[in-house]
Design a binder for these strands. Structure first.
Length: 511
RNA sequence: GGGCCUGUAGCUCAGCGGUUAGAGCUGGCCGCUCAUAACGGCUAGGUCGCGGGUUCGAAUCCUGCCAGGCCUACCA
């Protein structure tokens, strides 16, 4: 049976429409999911929306609709976006699902049974906007004499009964986890952040609210709803059947990777493992925090009015182009800067001119001059072997090795080098000259090139699935010969080529 | 305020103690004509944020400062 691979994105908070950052994280996860499937893993890939919490309740109130209606609408936008982007999720998760409430309560009860939950009283200056309590000393006075949080949001004196989680118990176990598994949280930036936070001492965590009811009810205390992060994190369990579907759950848990943004590292690398330890469940194998994308070097925000709709980018440039750009342009884990010009430049140089045109010049030559069929007829030369070695190494070794460590840009860089080598080979071998002088040799050259294109397309398919599929169709490669295992296949004896169509059209700025 | 991260050719990035600091894009020159005016070859271009220090030797280590980001903080 295939080796399971369970991968998650963070579930997205749908108090607004999805932005490019949501697309970035989810596309990256999708590439990894497709990559692992093509390597033969039994992949379970989950994304979704995190719909509870005060901010959703308030936003709904402002709009005069129910939180449920707001969640339905906004979650739909996320799902639509992901469908357009070709996200191959196995499960689109919503925390408002009934099963999730039951699962969160089950987790809660497991933590309670372990003696880690207790009722206490919480009071202080509470900012609804920040969803946080502040100390008196932190407050400032606004123009009208009202008290403001450090973020400048209004605060009100609030007292509520709250359940607390004994996070303080888990300081040592967490430190041991981080010490003994240096790769558990990546990159190092995030690991450092977590280490320092835990070393600084952990206070018990307030994990329930009574000031609103849009959330998961605390078992046996109906007036409380769970703190959003408790039920949000639980989605990783619920989505694979916790607690009732033991077969599915045990197959996929613990997760192989939680892919998240760098801003929510603490929740995933401190609170989450503590909850799981408390409930007696195994911990996920790894957490990876990606960087943020900056629009021409600036953070996108509503107040700056520079928020990009990822759907518009996908429509303007194409889904495959956008996916390729997102993974190729940035060092995953670090922040990156993008612009429409950068997308066009990258797409034209690498996808249209280098790879797309390579396929087009070879396939269309075959369609025109060989009646659409090529086969190996002569002995391979040194140049043939050198090219095939280069392409084979890039596709079977370099790209997979890089993708395994989430170094997508490095993997695609190695892949591009192989594409360059193919174009150089075409020029050196000049099949258009061989057509007149040595048709047998011409067949061999074209045959080598078809096989290289086949392997390049298979390797890059997780990133640009539609275009790769078109190319493999054009080469008449069977569906079950399109995975990484097939890279090592013996070259097909012959290739049948229909009249090809360019798979990556050139883009221009006016478009 | 503290911690961590980032700052390398016009642009996006790699290099993270050791020969003349690399790649791609952009620019210039040459070649080719199969191809999406695409491809190939050559070439131009850098005070490695700034100032100190360690070392035979630093973009690479230490320190101070500047700019941006993330996390965090009882600092009136």
């Amino acid at each position: 049976m295939a080796d399971p691979f369970y991968l998650t994105t963070a579930i997205h908070y749908p108090n607004g429409r999805p932005h490019l950052g949501h697309a970035y994280e989810t596309v990256a996860a999708d590439v990894l999911a497709r990559f692992q499937r093509a390597r033969g893993r039994d992949v379970r890939f989950q994304t979704g929306t995190d719909e509870h919490g005060l901010k959703m309740a308030q936003k709904a109130r402002d709009l005069g609709i129910t939180p449920r209606a707001l969640a339905d609408e906004m979650s739909g936008h996320f799902r639509d976006l992901f469908d357009v982007l070709g996200i191959s999720y196995d499960r689109f998760f919503r925390t408002s699902e009934d099963a999730h409430h039951l699962a969160s309560q089950a987790l809660w009860q497991a933590m309670e049974a372990n003696g880690d939950l207790y009722l206490d009283r919480y009071e202080g200056w509470y900012s609804v906007r920040d969803e946080a309590y502040y100390d008196e000393a932190e407050l400032t006075i606004g123009e009208g004499g009202e008290k403001l949080s450090p973020q400048g949001t209004p605060v009100e004196w609030t007292a509520e009964e709250s359940w607390f989680f004994r996070l303080s118990r888990y300081q040592e176990p967490l430190l041991a986890l981080l010490r003994d598994n240096p790769e558990w949280v990546r990159p190092d930036r995030s690991r450092n952040e977590v280490m320092r936070f835990v070393e600084g001492g952990l206070n018990d965590l307030s994990v329930s609210r009574t000031s609103f009811d849009w959330g998961v009810k605390v078992p046996g205390a109906d007036e409380h709803v769970m703190y959003v992060w408790v039920d949000a994190l639980t989605n990783y369990l619920t989505g694979i059947g916790y607690p009732d579907d033991k077969a599915t759950f045990e197959k996929f848990w613990p997760a192989d990777l939680h892919l998240i943004g760098k801003d929510i590292v603490r929740f995933h690398a401190v609170y989450w493992p503590a909850f799981l330890m408390s409930a007696g469940l195994p911990l996920p194998k790894a957490v990876f925090a990606h960087g943020f994308l900056l629009n021409r070097g600036q953070k996108e925000s509503k107040s700056l009015g520079n928020v990009t709709d990822p759907l518009a980018l996908a429509e303007r440039f194409g889904v495959d182009v956008l996916r390729y750009f997102l993974l190729r342009e940035f060092s995953f884990g670090q922040d990156g800067t993008w612009s429409p010009e950068a997308i066009i430049s990258r797409a034209n140089a690498e996808l249209a001119n280098s790879f797309g045109n390579l396929a087009q010049r070879v396939l269309s030559f075959i369609a025109k001059n060989c009646d659409g069929e090529v086969s190996a007829q002569g002995e391979p030369t040194e140049a043939d072997r050198a090219l095939q070695d280069k392409v084979g190494h890039a596709c079977s070794i370099e790209l997979p090795e890089a993708f395994e460590r989430l170094a997508f840009a490095a993997g695609l860089e190695a892949w591009m080098q192989a594409v360059f080598a193919c174009n150089a080979y075409v020029d050196e071998q000049a099949p258009w000259a061989l057509r007149k002088t040595d048709p047998v040799r011409m067949q061999t050259v074209l045959h080598v090139l078809c096989d290289c294109i086949r392997r390049l397309a298979i390797a890059v398919a997780p990133v640009v699935p539609s275009a790769a599929e078109q190319l493999l169709d054009a080469l008449t490669i069977p569906d079950d010969r399109r995975n990484f295992g097939s890279l090592a296949d013996d070259t097909p004896l012959s290739f049948q080529i229909d009249k090809p169509v360019p798979v990556f059209p050139r883009l221009d700025l006016g478009a």
